[in-house]
Design a protein around this nucleic acid. Structure first.
Lengths: 210, 210
DNA sequence: GACTATTTTGACTGATGGTCATTTTTGTGA
DNA sequence: TCACAAAAATGACCATCAGTCAAAATAGTC
């Protein structure tokens, strides 16, 4: 009798409904002002029930981060399988991230509060592991694009793909949301593109330049 | 009778005592766990009194950010006046920031929560203006280093100093604390240096390279 | 239908940022 | 030294909100 499996499936479904509700509430009220009571009401559960699905508000927030990561990972996968040179792939990753930012601004906001939520979470929390796994998979994808780029000569042969994948993903997921949020005077999109151009120039094969 | 001026001076002094106390408490208990009551006790004021000096906890936190900015700005000024090529100055700024991070980790932590506090602050708040001014002054300093670098030929002639100053300061103040905080496996200092090296390569004059 | 296990509820608690009427201190002029 | 006003400080109090838990409702099983 697979009733245990069905139960587990249903549990995951309800968990997802709660995340849906949380996203809605965060979107309309902002992360700071959204309360667990709001989310409970939107999800049509009692507050107590939320806590059987998530250990804490922070964990719920991290679940939203995880969702965002999965969305962006799948879009990155599409880019990775395009039939273009690796350096252009890297540039496409950047523009994909910008599109992602425009399409799902609430995910980006979740990203920018990520550390806070992570700090306020139990280390054993499974969401943390899932996030780390997802991040690693994204870095690996970037790393293999770089490796390929060294072979197809579009990326400098001395690029260190393991470090570079950290740096590139850090730039996209960390710096960029910063840039896009708080500059008043300067056009932030222009700044974004300039940053990407800089990094791209730095890792491009020299032969492309002269 | 200059009693009004003296009063104002004393008021500022007391304000600074409170910031001192807040720093101490934040340092020992962490930003998240420090309460206004804790700070009041450490400062030897009542909680109510704190609120005659700061409109909110967020504003108090931003005051600490402002202090950190002033410290780093003064250290940057020292670098700017060194007798070295501009590109090396840029690299010195980076290592100075790293030293700053080691010497005053609590300021960096304040930086990383900056947006949160800013968001929770009234727009009219004078600290906001002061922070913006300080940031601009730091960017201007970086901008003029870049301009000089274009003259002494250590920096590419096509570098756009206005954008670049945003990007560089953004990397240091935003990305770098990120890098330094959350990577487990990879040596974060190495990653930091790699990032700086990348950016520096990107803006270096080509003649330095071949 | 009886009995158990699971899920859900919502009133309650504790913590904490912020307020405000009241008290204390300080400064001034006579 | 006293009276009086202005400024500063107090701390009890309030509102909000994350998180808890005993009790109720529901689902599953024989």
């Amino acid at each position: 009798m697979g009733s245990a499996e069905r139960k587990e499936r249903e549990r995951l479904q309800r968990q997802n409904l709660i995340i849906d509700a949380a996203e809605k509430v965060f979107m309309s009220k902002g992360f700071e002002n959204a309360t667990m009571d709001d989310i409970a009401e939107e999800a049509e559960f009692s507050k107590g029930a939320l806590y059987t699905y998530f250990q804490s508000k922070n964990e719920l927030c991290l679940s939203i981060v995880l969702r965002g990561l999965k969305v962006i990972a799948s879009e990155f996968h599409n880019v990775a399988s395009e039939n273009i040179s690796s350096i252009v792939k890297i540039e496409h990753l950047a523009s994909t991230f910008l599109k992602f930012y425009n399409n799902y601004p609430n995910y980006i906001f979740a990203f920018s509060n990520y550390k806070q939520h992570r700090a306020g979470c139990k280390l054993e929390s499974p969401v943390l592991l899932d996030i780390d796994t997802e991040n690693k998979s994204i870095r690996d994808m970037i790393g293999s694009i770089i490796q390929n780029g060294k072979q197809d000569k579009s990326i400098r042969s001395d690029a260190e793909s393991d470090k570079l994948s950290y740096v590139l993903w850090g730039e996209l997921s960390g710096l960029v949301p910063n840039l896009l949020q708080d500059m008043g005077k300067v056009d932030s999109i222009e700044l974004y593109n300039y940053t990407i151009m800089l990094v791209s120039e730095a890792i491009k094969s020299r032969t492309d330049l002269i």
